[in-house]
Simulated assay, not measured.
Amino acid sequence: MAWIVLVVSGVLEAVWATALGRTAGFSRLTPSIVFVVGLVLSMVGLAYAMRSLPTGTAYAVWVGIGAALTVAYAMLSGDEAASPLKIVLLLGVVGCVVGLKVLS
């Protein structure tokens, strides 16, 4: 159960990071609300997962999922340029996250 919560929390990290970029300094209400709700839920999920998973592993997986999804979404939405090298590097991050799960 902790791994499922951790993955969902990593997805929520990507949600709040993306929303933060769209708040325009917290002057836009909807992205600001999405940011706060996503941040709180992401942190609560990370804290829950860390009850039974090692801190370093849980944090690395959480950050890896959030970072990879944030960049992937930015590339898909056209906010960031995509390149074959970036995609390979993102796959490397995902591979490392999977590796941490397998070794746990």
Rank of each mutant, 00 (worst) to 15 (best):
M1Y: 07
A2F: 09
A2M: 04
A2S: 15
W3S: 08
V5K: 02
V7Y: 08
V8P: 07
S9T: 04
G10S: 02
V11Y: 01
V11M: 13
L12A: 08
L12Q: 05
E13I: 05
E13M: 05
W16C: 10
W16Y: 15
A17Q: 05
A17D: 05
A17Y: 04
A17F: 02
A19Y: 08
A19C: 06
A19S: 10
L20P: 07
L20M: 13
L20K: 04
G21Y: 01
G21D: 01
R22C: 00
R22M: 14
R22D: 13
R22G: 09
R22K: 14
T23Q: 12
T23Y: 12
G25C: 05
F26Q: 02
R28F: 06
L29D: 12
T30R: 09
T30N: 04
T30A: 15
P31T: 09
P31E: 11
S32M: 00
S32A: 07
I33Y: 09
V34K: 09
F35I: 11
F35G: 11
V36F: 15
V36S: 12
V37Q: 02
V37T: 11
V37M: 09
L39S: 05
L39C: 07
L39Y: 06
V40E: 08
V40Q: 00
L41H: 06
L41K: 02
L41I: 07
S42W: 07
S42I: 08
S42F: 00
M43L: 15
M43Q: 13
V44K: 07
V44S: 09
G45T: 01
G45S: 06
L46G: 01
L46E: 02
Y48D: 07
Y48I: 15
A49N: 07
A49G: 02
A49V: 03
A49D: 04
M50F: 03
R51D: 13
R51M: 09
R51K: 14
S52H: 08
P54Y: 04
G56R: 10
G56I: 10
T57I: 14
Y59W: 11
G64F: 02
G64E: 00
G64Y: 01
A67F: 03
A67W: 02
A68N: 00
A68Y: 07
A68P: 06
L69P: 04
T70M: 06
A72M: 13
A72C: 10
Y73F: 14
Y73L: 14
A74G: 15
A74I: 11
M75L: 11
M75C: 14
L76K: 11
S77L: 08
S77M: 11
G78S: 09
D79T: 03
D79F: 09
E80N: 08
A81Y: 00
A82V: 14
A82L: 13
S83R: 05
S83T: 13
P84S: 12
P84L: 12
P84W: 13
L85R: 15
L85H: 06
K86L: 05
K86W: 10
I87N: 01
V88S: 01
L91M: 14
G92Y: 05
G92H: 00
V93W: 04
V94S: 06
V94L: 13
V94M: 07
V94N: 08
G95C: 10
G95P: 12
C96T: 13
C96L: 15
V97S: 05
V98G: 04
V98H: 07
V98W: 05
G99W: 13
L100Q: 09
L100H: 08
L100E: 07
L103E: 11
L103V: 15
S104P: 01
S104T: 10
S104Y: 09
